[in-house]
């Protein structure tokens, strides 16, 4: 342990610590479009973007609509010697239907549909009041915490690559075509990547900080 704190308590608000390596910095918001990274481990600390809140809200709505739409259209279509079949996202998630594999069905459904959906809904709940100059929502902080916790468990992009692999894997067995839902899902993946680039966690936490806003 170290001795007494070298930094006076009232100055703590101006400090920021890297969540990955605990390096301590004096925080100041960089100009819009600039990025402040940890000098030691290069974790992005602050990266404010122009009109980030509005952009994230629009992209969230787009993601929600696309995922909900993708649920009902066929994902992949297969045909071989007169037999045809098509699978939707729900079919794929519910493929593990017998015995202990049901657990897996629920997990897959959660990873590729429920968690991505839940995340954008939480983001909308947090950012909507902020962008429209209202006081933060009642449980904004819990909601944003959850959306951050769920981030690694949102696996839409992995599922999309899985589709491509499946396609090649049964190419010698039958003919496979991408259905409309595949393209919807592929665009969800791209939008999620863009949305993440607009997300500055430091700015969001500042905007819903109870002592900042009221």
């Amino acid at each position: 342990m170290t001795g007494p704190a070298a930094v006076p308590v009232e100055d703590l608000e101006t400090l920021i610590a890297c969540p990955q390596c605990d390096a301590l910095y004096h925080a100041h918001a960089p100009a819009k479009g600039e990025t402040a990274k940890c000098l030691r481990c290069h974790t992005v600390l602050i990266s404010p973007k122009n009109r980030a809140g509005m952009t994230i809200i629009m992209l969230s709505i787009a993601i929600m609509v696309l995922i909900l739409g993708a649920l009902w259209f066929p994902f992949l279509q297969i045909s071989q010697s007169g037999f045809r079949n098509s699978a939707s996202l729900v079919d794929a998630a519910l493929a593990f239907s017998d015995g202990p594999l049901v657990v897996l069905s629920i997990t897959v459904l959660a990873l590729i549909v429920l968690i991505p959906l839940l995340r954008v809904m939480l983001l909308l709940y947090v950012l909507w009041p902020v962008v429209f100059d209202r006081p933060p929502a009642d449980h904004a902080r819990a909601a944003f915490r959850w959306s951050e916790t769920l981030r690694p468990w949102s696996m839409a992009e992995i599922f999309a690559l899985g589709c491509a692999v499946s396609l090649v894997k049964v190419a010698n067995l039958a003919r496979i075509d991408f259905g409309p839902a595949f393209w919807m899902f592929a665009s969800v993946v791209v939008i999620i990547v863009i949305q993440d680039r607009f997300m500055c966690r430091w700015s969001v936490w500042n905007s819903i900080d109870p002592r900042h806003s009221r």
Binding site: M1, T2, G3, P4, A5, A6, V7, V9, L12, E13, L15, I16, A17, C18, P19, C21, D22, A23, L24, Y25, L39, R40, L45, R145, E148, R201, W202, W205
Partner: peptide, 25 residues
């Protein structure tokens, strides 16, 4: 600042929040 000389929150007698990067006693 050179890499070797960045103190950590812990070394300054502080605790950092891994969620929102704020620092506290």
């Amino acid at each position: 600042a050179t890499l070797a000389h960045i103190p950590t929150a812990r070394e300054k007698g502080l605790v950092s929040c891994r969620r929102c990067t704020r620092v506290w006693p």
